[in-house]
């Protein structure tokens, strides 16, 4: 009984360590290979377009409604203290520090993370990755490096967009639906929200972008066994990336608070 329990825990721990060990090695290689010739800048542009601009409309719509719903939810509470004009700051701070990076990251995971795992996984099971190796083209550099870097940059930019659109959503609900005073609303946002709130969120976004691309590519790269294997990799990539995003969200917040960010 006890032994089998220990065995289970042991194998789980080993699996966990193996995963993060592989993840670390693959990420390290993918990051450092970017500085080796040939650079293939076109591939970066291509992935920037697919990861960045494909997610843009979805993230804009989601953020607009998220900003709006924060205003909607907080209005009655602030109304009791006649402090409706503070809603702007609440929307701005909660979007910038928390919701924009996390929402954008989850949406990019669903859209691009799954695509990365599926695409690289398919290339693995149809021997296209072996074919790359056959032509002395490093598959990690060719397939993973550009995705990793562009995912980081895209997620930072998407988070900025999400911040702005979310704030607009809050503004529309507060000012146009509830008739909060426009000047006070903007003034209090200025007084209470700081640029450091935005930076806090952008640091998170960069880390999330890295996690999404590295985890999804990892699952794709180690895919085994046909169409079923590709399906499994894709599911695991999305689930693991999402969990990692939420756990790292807490860890980063905790760390950044130590530095008063």
């Amino acid at each position: 009984m006890l032994i089998s329990l220990l065995e289970k825990i042991g194998s789980y721990v080993i699996g966990f360590l193996e995963f993060w060990g592989r993840w670390f090695l693959l990420s390290l290689k993918a990051v450092s290979l970017a500085f080796k010739r040939p650079f293939r800048l076109k591939r970066y542009l291509y992935y920037f377009a697919t990861i960045g601009s494909d997610s843009l409309p979805v993230i804009a719509i989601t953020s607009l409604f998220t900003g709006g719903v924060i205003a909607l939810e907080t209005y009655s509470a602030f109304h009791r203290f006649n402090a409706e004009y503070m809603i702007g700051a609440v929307v701005a701070i909660s979007m910038a520090r928390e919701l924009s990076p996390v929402l954008s990251a989850l949406l990019v995971t669903a859209r691009s993370g799954s695509a990365m795992a599926a695409e690289i996984g398919t290339m693995r099971v149809t021997e296209q990755i072996d074919a790359l190796e056959m032509m002395a083209v490093n598959p990690i550099k060719f397939l993973i490096t550009p995705r990793l870097y562009t995912s980081v940059v895209s997620l930072v930019l998407l988070t900025i967009v999400s911040d702005i659109v979310g704030y607009i959503g809050g503004y529309l609900v507060s000012v146009h639906l509830f008739g909060v005073n426009k000047t006070l609303y903007l003034r209090y946002t200025q007084n209470l929200a700081e640029m450091s709130d935005v930076y806090h969120g952008l640091i998170k976004a960069a880390v999330f972008g890295f996690l999404i691309a590295s985890i999804s590519c990892l699952y794709g790269y180690y895919t085994r066994g046909g169409a079923k294997g590709v399906g499994e990799s894709t599911t695991k990539a999305v689930v693991s990336s999402s969990i990692a995003i939420l756990i790292f969200d807490y860890l980063i917040t905790y760390l950044l608070r130590l530095f008063n960010l």
Partner: peptide, 16 residues
């Protein structure tokens, strides 16, 4: 790689 190459049974063409 410049000395030897392998033609895959499945072709393994880059489908993109």
């Amino acid at each position: 790689r410049e000395t030897l190459t392998y033609v895959f049974q499945s072709g393994a063409l880059f489908d993109s």
